[in-house]
Amino acid sequence: MRLSLPLFWVIPLLSGCVADESLSAYGGAGQSWVLKELDQATYGEMATLNLTTPGEISGQAPCNSYRAQQTAPYPWFEIKALATTRKACPALEQERTYLNALQSMSEAEIAGDVLILRNDSGQEMIFTR
Rank of each mutant, 00 (worst) to 15 (best):
M1D: 10
R2D: 14
R2E: 13
L3G: 06
S4Q: 08
S4C: 02
L5W: 07
L7K: 11
F8Q: 08
F8E: 14
L13K: 03
L13N: 04
L13R: 00
L13D: 03
L14I: 14
L14V: 11
L14W: 03
S15F: 05
V18H: 01
A19E: 05
A19Q: 12
D20Q: 06
S24D: 06
S24W: 03
A25G: 10
Y26V: 06
G28F: 02
A29K: 12
G30V: 10
S32H: 10
S32R: 14
W33I: 02
W33G: 05
W33C: 03
D39H: 04
A41I: 05
A41Y: 09
A41H: 14
T42S: 12
T42K: 13
G44S: 14
G44D: 14
M46N: 15
T48K: 09
T52I: 11
T52P: 00
T52L: 10
T53W: 06
G55F: 00
E56W: 05
I57E: 02
S58M: 04
G59C: 04
G59A: 06
G59R: 05
A61P: 06
A61S: 15
P62G: 09
P62I: 12
C63T: 11
N64T: 11
S65Y: 09
R67D: 06
R67M: 13
A68I: 05
Q69C: 02
Q69K: 12
Q70V: 01
Q70F: 00
T71N: 05
P73I: 02
Y74C: 02
Y74F: 08
P75W: 11
W76F: 13
W76C: 00
F77D: 00
F77R: 04
F77N: 00
E78A: 12
I79N: 02
I79K: 00
I79W: 01
A81V: 08
A81G: 09
A81I: 10
A81R: 15
L82I: 09
L82H: 05
L82S: 11
A83Y: 01
A83E: 11
T85A: 12
R86I: 04
R86K: 15
C89I: 11
C89F: 07
P90L: 10
A91S: 15
A91V: 05
L92A: 08
Q94V: 03
R96C: 04
T97R: 13
T97W: 04
Y98L: 13
Y98S: 04
L99E: 03
N100R: 13
N100W: 03
L102A: 08
L102Q: 07
L102H: 02
S104V: 01
S104Q: 14
M105E: 04
S106N: 05
A108W: 00
A108K: 03
I110W: 01
G112M: 04
D113Y: 08
D113K: 15
D113Q: 15
L115S: 07
I116P: 01
R118T: 11
R118H: 09
R118W: 04
N119H: 13
N119A: 07
D120H: 11
G122I: 12
G122C: 07
E124T: 13
T128K: 12
R129K: 15
R129C: 04
R129A: 12
